[in-house]
Design a binder for these strands. Structure first.
Length: 610
DNA sequence: CCCAATGTAC
């Protein structure tokens, strides 16, 4: 049977993703006049999808003289596989309106998957409803897709309802439900189900581990990863590694990240683009830009994520020129930038006050690449304009843009007003900020100082008053320091550390030298309303200073001191860290809640804007 | 002949 023979050949093409053979076969079918056999065209459609030949798939589908359920299911799947779930949903209505066909189980599964990828819960529930009243209402595959959809939409309880209705639970449904709970940080339930999985394969482990990482439980995830390795699960698919690399990045644990990198090399996955992308990002987040550049330069193939990762990394570490020249290289290499790339680029410009270049990039993003600017893009642009003193222009951008600025954006503009002594504008911005009912204590300090400097004492005291009635920081400040295999955590005001005396002695010594150089503690950053001396004492015990002192005492001389802080560095600590970096001639890198600071020789890479 | 599970940059 020649048709069966051709089907077999096509399946081979799909397996090996052989584009040339597929096109040859297609030409052959046309010549033989066998394209009216639906099975043949449908399979061909499938192969085009698998080979990522979207244009060919679309043309074939469009030109098919008749289409059946299989044609539709296959075509919708090509859209899902090409990461175009919105297309899946927008094309589907034509199934009825043009071909008079109702969805079958295969089509339902594709639609549900598309809703899950989009997080489109409203449409997802509609599809679910239609599925329940269809003849396929009991299909287990569609049900496992539904479990996955609710998991991806962050509704594990809805997942569970569907999951419990599945008679014969397959691995996909187990994986999906575990992922759903893990992703929401519901560890107990995720683990409880994991214990019950009949086959604990790599998929199940990956779902559990990556879900936990996405909910910020990186430490638990690492524990499980080690357990998985010990149980001899072989990593035949590198996806779990990208999650684990990402967890090292989130925790900013450089040593851990290096170990994971070693494992990646050992398992032979360094040549995998998305793994290397994750490594570049990890080194950047761990503030080791030279390692990030190393991985990036060794990559034989780089996609838009690779370039964007290194650009954003350079931008966040204050290396604006590097970010911009990387962008030029990216364009020369024929890689098209996307919305994330431009966030990094405009951010880079704002760091060094390259106003014209930033404006050009913003314009180019819209005009050359057709990207609709998001609030984040406007925030970067406003930051750029504010920092460089173009306050009127910033105001007109605010009036023209289709978003309302958020609290940090108003705060950044307000700081810019202070810097450029524009009291009139400051009051305007402050009023907007005030009406947002800010939650960040430092915002009240900024507000109060702004009003006070303009003689608006009543407003100033109102802001101070609100601040004092505000619950003092829900989260206590802490800093981590890592070097070698050691890591230590310091809380603000901590006085029980075994090396407390040495730390206190060193900080005192440094304090004397700093004051000799003209340092005066800026106590306006202290929230409690206590006397001046007490405020100075509190500043003295801020966690980043304890961590730096510990680092100076214990780390190898000359090495970079790396610190991760949960909150933002206060203005006084920023001054102090600059001074310390100069006094002891050491580079200090602090990753705070907002950005990176490289203190070196009395200067900071953030250019004192943060 | 077609459907379901794990992933990287803001």
């Amino acid at each position: 049977m020649p048709i069966l023979h051709y089907l077999h050949q096509l399946q081979n093409c799909a397996k090996h993703r052989s584009i040339v053979s597929t096109k040859q076969l297609h030409a052959h079918f046309i010549k033989l006049g066998v394209t009216q056999f639906l099975a043949l065209s449908n399979t061909l459609l499938n192969v085009y999808g698998k080979c990522s030949l979207l244009q060919d798939a679309l043309q074939l589908f469009d030109e098919m003289p008749q289409r059946d359920h299989v044609s539709w299911a296959t075509f919708l799947t090509t859209q899902n596989q090409a990461n175009l779930p919105d297309k899946t949903l927008s094309i589907f209505p034509a199934m009825f309106s043009i071909d008079r066909l109702l969805p079958d189980d295969f089509v339902f599964a594709s639609l549900v998957k598309a809703c899950g990828s989009l997080g489109a819960i409203k449409q997802g529930k509609q599809v679910h409803g239609n599925f329940l009243v269809s003849p396929y209402f009991d299909d287990d595959v569609v049900k496992s897709s539904l479990v996955d959809m609710y998991a991806k939409c962050g509704l594990p309880d809805d997942s569970r309802l569907v999951f419990d209705s599945i008679k014969l639970k397959n691995m996909a449904s187990w994986t999906a439900i575990i992922y759903g709970y893990a992703r929401k940080g519901r560890k107990e339930e995720a683990l409880e189900l994991f214990v019950r999985v009949p086959l604990k394969n790599l998929f199940a482990w990956t779902a559990l581990i990556s879900g936990l990482i996405q909910s910020g439980n990186g430490v638990d995830a690492f524990g499980l990863f080690v357990k998985m390795r010990r149980q001899g699960i072989s990593i035949i698919d590198p996806l779990v590694l990208s999650s684990i690399v990402g967890a090292s990045a989130n925790l900013a644990m450089l040593e851990l990240g290096k170990q994971v990198h070693g494992l990646v090399i050992q398992l032979g996955y360094e040549s995998c683009v998305f793994i290397s992308n994750a490594l570049v990002d990890m080194y950047a987040k761990c503030s080791d830009m030279s390692a990030a550049r190393g991985v990036f330069s060794r990559m034989s193939r780089r996609d838009v994520v690779s370039w964007t990762s290194i650009i954003v990394g350079a931008a966040q570490h204050g290396q604006a020129e590097e970010a911009l020249s990387l962008y030029d290289n990216m364009i020369l290499n024929g890689v098209e930038p996307n919305e994330v790339t431009f966030v990094g680029l405009i951010y880079a410009c704002s760091h060094v006050g390259l106003v014209n270049r930033g404006r050009e990039l913003f314009k180019s993003m819209v005009e050359d690449y057709g990207i609709h600017p998001s609030l984040q893009h406007y925030t970067c642009l406003l930051d750029l304009l504010g920092r460089s003193g173009h306050l009127e222009e910033a105001e007109s951008v605010i009036n023209l843009m289709p978003f309302k600025p958020d609290e940090p954006t108003w705060a950044a503009l307000l700081s810019a007003c202070k810097q450029y002594r524009n009291a009139k504008m400051a009051i305007k911005f402050a009023d907007h900020l005030f009406s947002l009912k800010p939650e960040e204590p430092s915002t009240y300090i900024l507000l109060s100082n702004t009003y006070a400097s303009s003689g608006l004492w009543e407003h100033a005291s109102k802001a101070r008053h609100l601040l004092e009635s505000l619950e003092v920081r829900k989260e206590p400040g802490y800093s981590y320091i890592y070097f070698g295999k050691e890591n230590q955590m310091f809380y603000a005001g901590e006085t029980s550390h075994p090396m407390k005396d040495e730390i206190f002695g060193l900080l005192n010594e440094l304090d004397v030298e700093m004051r000799r150089r003209g340092y005066v503690p800026d106590t306006s950053y202290i929230l409690h309303n206590t006397d001046h001396q007490e405020k100075e004492r509190q500043l003295f015990w801020h966690s980043e200073r304890l961590a730096v002192a510990y680092g100076l005492l214990k780390s190898v001389p000359g090495t970079v001191i790396r610190i991760v802080k949960n909150l933002r560095v206060c203005g006084d600590c920023h001054t102090v860290l600059k001074l310390i970096s100069d006094i002891v001639q050491r580079e200090i890198v602090v990753r705070d809640a907002k950005r990176y600071h490289h203190f070196k020789g009395g200067k900071c890479s953030c250019n004192d804007f943060w």
